[in-house]
């Protein structure tokens, strides 16, 4: 005869039953691919036939390549400056758009355009714009204004290319940041500002002591998201200027040009994953204080 369960045991069983579907879905869609990727990173993956176990060779191949370390540095430059720029620019625009002025609704809509326009179309527009021989930018600064005595390739030249990619990223992504911030700005209790005004606070002090603390977690989350997105960004950077070898682009060259090297690609994905997770953990603990 089966022993009847106590109320606590029934609750525990119900808990397990409720959580189980999520555990299975997460296990299948997240844990399994990550684990399989780690497993694959220790093999030479052959197009046909079985794979060959090579231990940590894929990893040593990568970390002994100087281009890998250059791409790590490029990635950090790109991610830090583009994330910081996007957040700052989004914040400034959101603060400006929170004020009342004529045609505000139209201006607010226009601001969204860079974010919603297809990447490929914008990238080609930028390339034509900055083309060293036919581009209008060079034509203006060299031929019309005479600021430079000879033409140059702003997008292509390695020392400029990363800054063009960063500016492009800021320009393309700031509307999202702006939208999130302005949504939060509109929920701040106006009586706080009224009280501050009675106390004689300047605009800067109102921003520092009311607006910024209210926005703190929105900004924190936006920085975190932008950091992750830009760390993994491929299409925008590669299409605009493949000279900016961030980690995803390095991975593409290393693993996916010519005959694919899935083992090498997996090892790179693991390294990228570890770097990203490490940085996120530090950020979440130190900045977001979760």
């Amino acid at each position: 005869m089966r022993q009847s369960l106590t109320l606590e045991q029934k609750k525990a069983r119900l808990g397990v039953q409720l959580v189980l579907p999520s555990v299975i879905v997460i296990g299948l869609l997240i844990i399994y691919p990550v684990a399989y990727n780690m497993y694959l990173s220790m093999f030479k993956v052959n197009l046909v036939g079985s794979n060959t176990f090579i231990g940590a060779k894929n990893y040593t191949n990568i970390i002994t390549d100087i281009t890998f370390w250059q791409s790590v540095l490029t990635t950090f430059l790109y991610v830090v400056f583009s994330t910081f720029g996007t957040t700052l620019f989004g914040l400034i625009v959101a603060l400006a758009m929170n004020k009342k002025f004529p045609l505000r609704m139209i201006v607010r809509s226009i601001i969204i355009l860079p974010y919603v326009a297809p990447v490929i179309a914008i990238v080609y527009a930028w390339q034509f714009f900055f083309d060293p021989v036919n581009g209008i930018f060079i034509h203006v600064v060299v031929e019309m204004l005479g600021l430079y005595d000879q033409r140059f390739n702003l997008i292509g030249t390695p020392e400029y290319a990363i800054w063009v990619a960063i500016i492009f990223s800021i320009w393309k992504s700031f509307p999202f940041t702006y939208l999130m911030i302005i949504a939060r700005l509109q929920t701040i209790d106006t009586t706080l500002y009224e009280a501050a005004e009675i106390d004689g606070c300047s605009s800067w002090k109102k921003f520092l002591h009311i607006t910024f603390p209210e926005l703190y977690f929105v900004l924190g989350t936006l920085i975190l998201l932008r950091f992750v997105w830009n760390f993994n960004k491929f299409e925008e950077v590669y299409l605009l200027t493949e000279n900016v070898k961030t980690l995803p682009i390095y991975t593409y060259f290393k693993a996916f040009t010519g005959v694919m090297d899935l083992g090498q690609g997996s090892a790179l994905a693991v390294i990228q994953f570890v770097l990203l997770i490490g940085l996120i953990l530090v950020y979440v603990k130190k900045v977001l204080k979760w």
Binding site: P132, V133, N134, R151, F152, N153, G156, T157, N243
Partner: peptide, 12 residues
């Protein structure tokens, strides 16, 4: 022509 170039520069 200035900067890195590929086949597309045949347009010039």
């Amino acid at each position: 022509p200035p900067g890195p170039q590929t086949w597309r520069a045949r347009d010039y």
